[in-house]
Simulated scan of single mutants.
Amino acid sequence: MLPKKKIGISAIPAVLLSMISIQSGASLAKQLFPVLGISGVATLRIGMSAIVLFGFFRPDFRNLKQKELLLGLGYGACLGAMNLIFYFAIQRIPLGLGVTLEFLGPLVLALMGSRKAIDLIWALLAGLGIFLITPRGDSSADMWGIVLAILAGAFWAGYIVIGGKISKVMKSGDAVTLGMLFASLFVIPIGVLSGDLYILNGNLLLLGLAVALLTSAIPFSLDMGALRQLPSKTFSILMSLHPAFAALSGLIFLNEQLNLIQGIAIGCVIAASIGATLTVKK
C-alpha cells in the first residue's frame, strides 16, 4: 500500500492568505472603478502582475515545450477573462454576492460526472442560494451582474483545471508568470482601446501595483504552490470559503451590508461546495 500523501504545513495557511489577499485587493479595485474604469483597472492588475512576477522569478522560457506553451496559453486566457468579466460583475452587485455566484464554477466542476444521489442535494442547495440571490423588488443585485459573475465562474473552473495540470510540468513561479504574460496579451489591448488609461498618474500607478500584488501576483503564486502540496479535495474545501471572505471584505472596505436573505444564500453555496467536495468521487 502506498503511503498517504503528506500535506505541507505551509500549504493550508498559504491558501487562506491567498483568499484574504484576493478579496482585499478586489475591494481596492472596486474603489478604483469610478476613476480608471473597469478595463483600466483590469489592465493595471494583469499587466503589472506580469511585470512583477517576471522580475521576481526571472523565468527562462527559451526551452518551453509545446505542452507547456499550450497550457500556459489556456491558463492565461482563463486568468484574463476571469478577472475582466468579474470586475464588470462587481460593478453591478456587491462583492460578496459576486464571489458567491462566481464560485458556482468550481462547484459545478466538483459535481461534474457525479453519480451519487447525495450530490443532488448539494446541487439543489446551491440552486437555492442562487434563487435567494436573484433580484426581486429592491434587491441590491441585478440580472446582468449575476450573469457576468456566473460567466466569470466558468473561467475560474478552467483556471483550477489548467492550473493543476501546469503545476505538474513547470515550476510554480514559471507557470504563474507564463500564464500572466498570456493574460496580458488578452487584457491590455482592451484597456488601451477603452481609453481608461489616459488619466494615469503616479498615485494611480501605485494603487494599481497594490491591486496587482494583492489580487494576482501574491495569491496566484500561493495557489500554485499549494496545488503542488495539497490533495485537490482539500484545496477545494478551502476554496469554498472564498464567498465568506468576500462578504467580510465588502463589509469592511466597501460598507456593503448584506441582508439576511443574501447571507443565507451565501451560506447555501458555501455548504453546497464543502458538501460536494467531501462526497464527490474523485
Rank of each mutant, 00 (worst) to 15 (best):
V280A: 15
E102T: 07
I93W: 03
M82W: 06
V41Y: 11
L178N: 00
I20K: 01
A149H: 10
G96D: 07
L260I: 15
T134M: 12
G129F: 00
I199R: 14
L71K: 10
L71Y: 15
S167G: 14
A271V: 13
L238N: 06
L204T: 09
S10H: 12
Q66S: 14
R115M: 06
P135I: 13
F57T: 03
T279L: 02
A14R: 03
G25C: 05
M143H: 12
S114M: 06
G145Y: 05
L230Q: 02
V211E: 04
G263A: 00
G208P: 02
S114V: 08
A152L: 02
C78I: 02
S49T: 14
L197R: 04
G98D: 03
A271H: 06
S236M: 04
L79T: 12
W122Q: 05
I261A: 11
L128I: 11
S249L: 01
N201D: 14
F253A: 13
L238I: 11
L70G: 08
D138F: 11
K65H: 13
I133S: 09
L97S: 09
P3I: 05
A126H: 04
L79M: 14
L207D: 04
A110W: 00
V211C: 03
G137I: 02
N63W: 04
S18T: 04
G98W: 00
I261M: 13
Y87C: 10
L200D: 02
A149F: 11
I270D: 00
I160T: 07
A89P: 05
I190N: 06
L178S: 01
F88S: 03
Y159E: 07
M82A: 12
S49Q: 10
S10G: 07
P106Q: 11
L238V: 06
A117H: 08
L209Y: 05
P13C: 09
A141L: 07
Q262Y: 01
T279I: 01
L64E: 07
G208V: 08
V269G: 01
S114P: 10
F56E: 08
G74L: 07
N201A: 05
M180C: 12
V192H: 02
L120P: 11
G250E: 06
I237L: 13
L79I: 15
F57P: 06
L104M: 14
G72F: 00
S232N: 13
V35C: 04
Y159A: 06
V15K: 09
A77K: 04
F86W: 13
S139R: 11
K65L: 11
S167P: 06
